[in-house]
Design a protein around this nucleic acid. Sequence first.
DNA 1: TGTCTTTTCCAAAGCGCTTTGGAAACGGTA
DNA 2: TACCGTTTCCAAAGCGCTTTGGAAAAGACA
Lengths: 341, 341
Amino acid sequence: MNLKSLANHLGLSQTTVSRALNGYSDVSLATRNRVSEAAKTYGYRPNVNARRLATGRSCVIGIAFPTDMNMFLDPHFIEFLTGLSEKASELDYDIMISSSQSEEVDVYRRFAEKGTVDLVILSNVDLSEERIRLLQDLNMPFIVHGRTATCDSYSYIDIDNYGVFHEPTKMLLEMGHDKIAILNGHPNRVYAIDRLNGWQDALKERGVMPNPDYMRAGAMSEENGYTFAMEILQLENRPTALLCSSVVMAKGAYRACNELGIKIGSEVSIVAHDDNVPLAQASDMNPPLTVTRSPLRDAGREIAIMAMNYLKGTDIKELQCLWHPELIFRKSVGAPPRTDI
Amino acid sequence: MNLKSLANHLGLSQTTVSRALNGYSDVSLATRNRVSEAAKTYGYRPNVNARRLATGRSCVIGIAFPTDMNMFLDPHFIEFLTGLSEKASELDYDIMISSSQSEEVDVYRRFAEKGTVDLVILSNVDLSEERIRLLQDLNMPFIVHGRTATCDSYSYIDIDNYGVFHEPTKMLLEMGHDKIAILNGHPNRVYAIDRLNGWQDALKERGVMPNPDYMRAGAMSEENGYTFAMEILQLENRPTALLCSSVVMAKGAYRACNELGIKIGSEVSIVAHDDNVPLAQASDMNPPLTVTRSPLRDAGREIAIMAMNYLKGTDIKELQCLWHPELIFRKSVGAPPRTDI
DNA sequence: TGTCTTTTCCAAAGCGCTTTGGAAACGGTA
DNA sequence: TACCGTTTCCAAAGCGCTTTGGAAAAGACA
């Protein structure tokens, strides 16, 4: 069933049927209803490719991922992708993924030249972002998940990563902690740099010098959380509090504490940033984990909406989201242990 | 740059340019070269949507995944998807993913009616497969990763799951083991059922009755491997050998053995099926793990090729792959411990 | 030389939709 | 009644490609 035969069945022109289905006001309500009724009974659905050709828009959001990076193995990325994909299909957008052993930029170039996608999503940005330059050169719309150093010229969604470590550090300092260590994410990712700065500044504001021994950074895996925590907690002058870049890492840290016989919440306080990935439920941990929380899935859903608005012509300035995670206090944090005995 | 202006530049008709680029023999080699030369210098790339409309084919492979199933969190699925996606882009096919909270079948219906994808890939099949029926009704081409009970009427790729447990069981029996336990995958998945049968039959062929206490089944996670192994290895009459449905599970079993102080390779032998997911390298384990090996990524790559051939009209009977994993013997297997002391 | 086959090219139709630029019908006003 | 502004519809022209059904040119053969 195509437009033509549907129009014939109805005794209307293709124009009218098309405009009726697309909700134009220059077709009377009566026929509009009649048409959508008929469309339903005949099971008519417009051919996307014809529509794409006619409109020049594909309603497809693209994501490139180089196979060597294995973004798919990162539960954080997956969580984001799930949200994106969910919302996209609600909005009648499709998601196209393209992996290749070749350069990621080649994928974008192909996307742009062939007209397969309307817009691409950039993840895992680092400071030196040539991908952004290329996309701007190609005139290919894009939205960044995260930010680079200068971010005025494009649309993005990000959380206040500076605050993610600044707030809890401040809180811990106020509780009397002054030996606060961080287990951070990949050191050249922008979010990790922001968090690092948040931590450092909070300390300095209180006159505490950041201790280089208290800094670790790497992929946000359980394994790394364990290893880093093991190292740091066996330092001679061990910290009384741990800030983790993700709940997954915190799980590793919990394991380390248990092995070392260090009591969480009294002997050491632990705070993590919580992307709300289903595998790692902060509230179910023992003791329940204090977190700054900002569900990645929500970010994925939001970016789908932003993509739609972008393509509708909304100004870029209105498509720059910065979310401020909430700090959720739980039992994994307590006063620092007394050292004066 | 579109076909028309490229043709003008060359002083040729659109027809000739189109046919030249698509390698038809009714255009001379000389002009064929001239055309592809010009296409390169002008950076011409055919508009996919126009081509799709004209040919009726989209060159897109679809995958639906219900969000509640969280297939993306399963490293096995990801590994498969990576291979599929790699090979697809080599073959100039695109991958479209569609998640939705709604029924998976609705996604297929939408795919079919809108003409977005040429073919869909089915994963995680179980015995009662209405999805297959629906796709056949919709006339939507599909390839199954795995098999159902009756699988003559469709194209699939699968491994000999019966053999995956039958072979190692036979081997272990021949080495003198007769108390062999299995840590299987999700009990209503076809592959798990096949493996169960392989194990049972091998035992029966030797006159050994399968012991119900020696059977465990569930998602193939490290956690489950650990839990199941802990249970089974603390039975009064504990088995001398463990068959695991995945290396990830075997890792959990290793952890259990270590905690219980049971020496792998002498006090207990362990064999697993190895999908070759990068997170779990069987050969790097201590001791190196004996496996039946069949890389999932290869299956993904193969299914992309099969998809292409399917769409080219290859007969279904030629698109039914059954791979036989190789058995790789390593140190995790040894003679059963002597009990006669 | 003329005829027949093969090679090489092309005009035009079509894929199924959207959109432009009216036209017809209608109702209100003078 | 004549005129004008609205409302409601539609014919036709695209979107950029592929493909069909020739036509022209070139070679082969008698």
